[in-house]
């Protein structure tokens, strides 16, 4: 599965430029504490978070995550979107809660 396949669902809206949407996806990781993400997320995971912070992208880049999904309709700062475009990391926003996001992704075929 690729990031672009996730975007086929009406729940998920791409808020960064059209970069990195061919990234492969191999699992879901949900957390708002970056040290847990650093310690436990794996390459090509999707990160679901409500943490509206530029350091999310530092971690996503270091771990080669496939994309970042902001749940609960979090309004993401322009500086974060701009940094994501520099790093080719797709940013996705959804109105779903974090748990609904996990379920929706799982139902569409992403699992770990």
């Amino acid at each position: 599965m690729k990031v672009k396949n996730i975007l086929e669902s009406e729940h998920f809206q791409l808020i960064s430029d059209n970069l990195g949407i061919e990234n492969e996806v191999n699992g879901i990781f949900s957390c708002d504490l970056l040290s847990h993400v650093m310690g436990f997320a794996n390459e090509k995971n999707i990160l679901i978070t409500v943490l509206n912070n530029i350091n999310v992208l530092g971690v996503a880049s270091l771990l080669d995550l496939s994309c970042v999904i902001f749940s609960h309709n979090i309004q993401v700062n322009e500086s974060i979107i701009s940094k994501a475009n520099d790093l080719d990391i797709p940013l996705i926003r959804t109105k779903l809660s974090t748990s609904e996001t996990v379920i929706s992704l799982y139902q569409s075929g992403v699992n770990n």
Partner: peptide, 16 residues
């Protein structure tokens, strides 16, 4: 904490 840190996992992660 506002920036997503402070989980108390830094040094244990480094040791691991």
């Amino acid at each position: 904490i506002e920036n997503g840190f402070g989980a108390g996992m830094g040094l244990p992660n480094i040791k691991a």
